[in-house]
Nucleic acid binder design. Structure first.
Lengths: 191, 191
DNA sequence: AAAACTGTACCAATCGTTCGGTATAGTGTC
DNA sequence: GACACTATACCGAACGATTGGTACAGTTTT
């Protein structure tokens, strides 16, 4: 699919401008495609473009960030890798999150369901690791949600304070934080 | 100032639609004022409207959320009160945060400085309490930033999962979390 | 030749903004 | 008290520009 050429470009644009701010002129300029070409590839207009971006994000989440989360390694190793890839995805806190952007615009209702599905998939993958590590399901889910809260909040604050250090600090501590009071990770106690 | 009649209304509108999504038609409808009348009260147009809303938010932060943070009470009491008022402000997680909304739209650059100032004021007020409670300035500032991260992230996740429980859970634990390893709060250890 | 693609021109609708003007309520002058 | 004057609040109508989207003829690619 040649769509994948333009989708990362669209992702950047929607992330930086939001749904309303990403006008067709900007999209045309960013992709190098004329209006007609855009509507050839995405007959559904802006909504379909965002849909394609969300498809892309879903694939990236499953195949990159969450890859290996169901493997045989230690929980801490898996979560550490997930955090590393998350940091990479958000350019160490310099990139905003499209999901948050979509949730805070006027098109919120249109994409809420898909965004929710992505967040839940992410959360459930983390929770599964924690359950496998011995945590009860309730605690595991809450802790997984806390992880997403930390990531999303750190992205917002890093944008707001115009420095990536909050994001970096959060993601560095996150794996240990997720594994607190868990079997395999207890050897690393407080100094 | 009769502006204060319209500003809370504008706050709601910008929070729900973002800068680009809040069109003058919507603003006109929401305030009950004609398009032209809006330019009587806010000659600077949308930018001035957002500016007025940020003025309003600054006053609310200083006089409501952070009120009493420099008083004589125990740190835990002050932080508990701040969290209660924060929960009230965001309707227990059902309202989004305008600051985050502005940071994630196309008008990001226009308001970044003012948003940053508000976040820093909030952070510094929390940090001051923690320093007074015996924490070193570096740790206090980081922990205060962590608090804002939790709040902002919880708001995003509550929006995304369409349930307020993450926000409520975070804000309930936050005061204790902020006071961990601090003099006056240590009596409340884990059960 | 068929299919995929694109540039040009165009559309109605809406965008943020401005203009000209109308009430209403004072305020000072005589 | 009648008068001219001013300030504030508000609105209908229109401005030029841009919005998201389409029609269609042409060009590439296969």
């Amino acid at each position: 699919m040649p769509k994948d050429t333009y989708v990362p470009c669209l992702l950047d644009l929607f992330r930086q401008n939001g749904y309303d701010g990403a006008t067709l002129s900007k999209i045309s300029e960013a992709t190098g495609l004329g209006r007609a070409s855009l509507y050839h590839h995405f007959p559904g207009g802006k909504d379909e473009m965002v849909g394609a971006v969300l498809d892309y994000l879903q694939r990236r989440l499953e195949q990159h960030i969450l890859q290996g989360m169901d493997g045989e390694e230690e929980p801490l190793v898996k979560l550490q890798r997930m955090c590393d890839r998350t940091a990479l995805t958000y350019d160490n806190g310099n990139r905003a999150c499209l999901l948050a952007t979509l949730l805070l615009g006027s098109a919120r209702d249109v994409f809420q369901v898909r965004v929710q599905a992505l967040l839940e998939a992410w959360r459930d993958a983390i929770a599964a690791v924690l359950i496998e590590a011995g945590l009860d399901p309730q605690t595991a889910q809450e802790r997984a949600e806390d992880a997403l809260i930390s990531i999303q909040g750190a992205l917002v604050l890093s944008q707001g304070l115009k420095k990536p250090s909050p994001f970096q600090r959060v993601l560095q501590k996150l794996p240990q934080e997720l594994c607190r009071n868990v079997r395999q990770c207890e050897q690393q106690a407080l100094p």
